[in-house]
Amino acid sequence: MGLGDLVQKAVYLGIGVASYAGEKAGEKLTELRAQVQKLADEMVDRGEMNAEEARRFVDEMVQKAQQQQATVTSEQARPTEPRKIEILDDDEPAPVSTSVDEMRQQVADLQEELRRLKRD
């Protein structure tokens, strides 16, 4: 295993730790900093990064955790729009449904939109 692989795994571990912290909004940020600092210290001890790189790594991981926590918190605080319900009386005829060709066109349009979003 090369140095690049180990650094890549460490970055993935850091991102995973940051993601976990974002999901657990109640956890203290200092605990995350300590975990990432410990990982960085181990990598410095093994000679995989120097002290300056370790400091930047810890700062980046803590910053990512803060950003994810803010994103999760803002998404949770955002009120969702209530679902619209149509109530029909038994005496009223059901609304005219769209034709099969129109529905196929809508599906095709939605599929194209999905492909466009995946590209972006």
Rank of each mutant, 00 (worst) to 15 (best):
I85Y: 06
T71Y: 13
V100W: 10
V17A: 12
R119G: 07
D89Y: 09
L88F: 07
T71R: 14
E23W: 10
P93K: 04
D59Q: 12
T80A: 09
M1V: 09
K28W: 12
T80P: 03
P93D: 08
K9Q: 14
P95I: 01
D5I: 05
Q76H: 11
V107G: 00
P95E: 01
A34C: 11
T98E: 15
L117M: 12
S97Y: 14
A18R: 00
S74G: 04
A70K: 11
R115W: 06
K9V: 12
A51V: 14
R116V: 05
V96S: 10
K9C: 08
K38H: 14
S99D: 07
K24M: 10
K9M: 12
Q37F: 06
E53M: 05
A77M: 08
V44T: 03
D101I: 05
Q37V: 05
A54M: 04
K38W: 11
Q105L: 02
A10G: 04
R115V: 07
G16Y: 04
T30A: 13
Q111L: 03
Q37S: 11
V44Q: 01
E81Q: 11
A25G: 14
E112K: 08
M43R: 03
L29E: 15
K38D: 13
P93G: 02
Q37E: 15
D45T: 13
M103V: 05
A108K: 06
V107Q: 00
S99V: 02
E86C: 05
K64A: 12
Q35T: 15
V58E: 01
G16D: 07
M61R: 04
A77Y: 07
E92L: 06
A25Q: 15
D5F: 07
Q111I: 01
E102F: 00
K84Q: 10
K28T: 15
M43A: 06
A21S: 08
Q105P: 01
E31D: 15
Q35C: 13
D89Q: 15
A51Q: 11
V36N: 00
E27S: 08
T98I: 15
V58N: 01
D101L: 10
I85K: 06
D45L: 11
V58P: 01
E92A: 08
V44R: 00
A25F: 09
E60M: 10
T73R: 09
I15Y: 06
S99P: 02
Y12N: 12
V100Q: 10
P93W: 01
T73V: 09
D90G: 10
S19H: 12
P93L: 03
I87M: 07
E75G: 05
E52L: 06
Q66Y: 06
M1E: 11
G4W: 13
V107P: 00
R56W: 09
N50W: 02
A70W: 08
D89V: 11
E102M: 01
A34Q: 14
A21W: 03
S19Y: 11
I85G: 02
R119E: 15
E102C: 00
A108F: 03
R104G: 00
M1P: 06
A25T: 15
D91W: 12
P95C: 01
Q67K: 15
L114T: 08
R116F: 02
K118V: 07
E81R: 13
